[in-house]
Each structure stands twice: as structure tokens, then as C-alpha cells.
């Protein structure tokens, strides 16, 4: 299945993906109106040290430990996409405790969120990938042929 992958050598550390993500999931039409002067709650984030930077977002794991651990039964996997039911989530952070990638963080209301590949928002494909100026994030299938 297609996943978001990073090429860390090419990441500029510009954080544009974080803004594109927050905008794509805001449901608003105007980027400045959606983001300017406000704290943003993107579902992808840049981690860096003095040598490298790279984007982190949900891996949509084959055997997702977040799904097995959620105390509210709010996380499920369907057609390859790991999804959080925001109606059921109670914001306990158990998924943050177990995700080996650090891919989840709460949104503004305290309800947990993570990358869902922009499939349910108006973008329709990962906005972070679309907007990355240096192809440091790509959306592709690397599964071995069976």
C-alpha cells in the first residue's frame, strides 16, 4: 500500500509540511485565515538534531500497537489506513505511550490526532507531500511484491 516516506537527506527543515498539514485539516479555504497568528496542530512534525532533519507522521503499521492499546476502542485499521474515531477518543494518551514513532499528538480540543493520509479531507492526497519543495517526503508503495 502507499505510505508517506521521508528522504531525510533532502529535508530542508523548513516546516512547510506542518503548515500544509494543519491547513489541509482545518477545513478552511484561506490559509492565512486558518493559520496566521494561531498555534497549529499538525499531524506531521519535523524532528532534528544538529546534522539532520526529517518529517515524522503515522506509518500505518502492519501490526499497529496503537490499535491494540487504545483504551476506548477508538483506533481501527481499515483498507490499510489507521483511523481515530474522534467521537470515541477520550484523550487518555495511551496511544502516545505506545507508538514507537511518536506519530500522535493531541489536537486543540485534547482529542488525539495523527496522519490519516488526507483521504478524508478536501485535499484527497497527502498535502505535506504535495507541498514539499524538495521531494523530501514522498507518497508511494514500497511493499515487496507478493
Amino acid at each position: 500500500m502507499k505510505r508517506v516516506y521521508v528522504n531525510e537527506e533532502w529535508c530542508l527543515g523548513c516546516h512547510l509540511c506542518e503548515y500544509n498539514c494543519a491547513f489541509a485539516n482545518s477545513g478552511l479555504k484561506d490559509m492565512a485565515y486558518a493559520l496566521k497568528g494561531k498555534p497549529i496542530y499538525p499531524r506531521i512534525h519535523i524532528e532534528e538534531n544538529d546534522k539532520i532533519s526529517y518529517a515524522v507522521s503515522c506509518r500505518h503499521c502492519d501490526d499497529p500497537i496503537c490499535v491494540k492499546s487504545c483504551i476506548a476502542g477508538a483506533i481501527s485499521k481499515k483498507d490499510g489506513v489507521v483511523h481515530i474515531d474522534s467521537e470515541k477518543c477520550v484523550g487518555c494518551h495511551t496511544c502516545v505511550l505506545v507508538c514507537p514513532y511518536g506519530a500522535l499528538a493531541p489536537g486543540e480540543s485534547g482529542i488525539m490526532q495523527k496522519c490519516e493520509l488526507c483521504l478524508a479531507n478536501s485535499c484527497g492526497e497527502p498535502a505535506c507531500v504535495k507541498g514539499c519543495p524538495n521531494n523530501a517526503i514522498v507518497f508511494e508503495s514500497r511493499d515487496e511484491e507478493v
Binding site: 521521508v6 524532528e47 503499521c61 514507537p100 514513532y101
Partner: peptide, 18 residues
């Protein structure tokens, strides 16, 4: 942060979903 892992270890971690 995974930035604290060695480059190869990190690449391996992020290349293959868990």
C-alpha cells in the same frame, strides 16, 4: 526523538512499517 538514533537505525525504522 528518533533523531537520537544512529542514521542507519532510524532509516531502517522508518523504512519499514512496524
Amino acid at each position: 526523538t528518533s533523531a537520537a538514533f544512529g542514521k542507519e537505525a532510524r532509516k531502517e525504522k522508518f523504512a519499514m512499517p512496524h
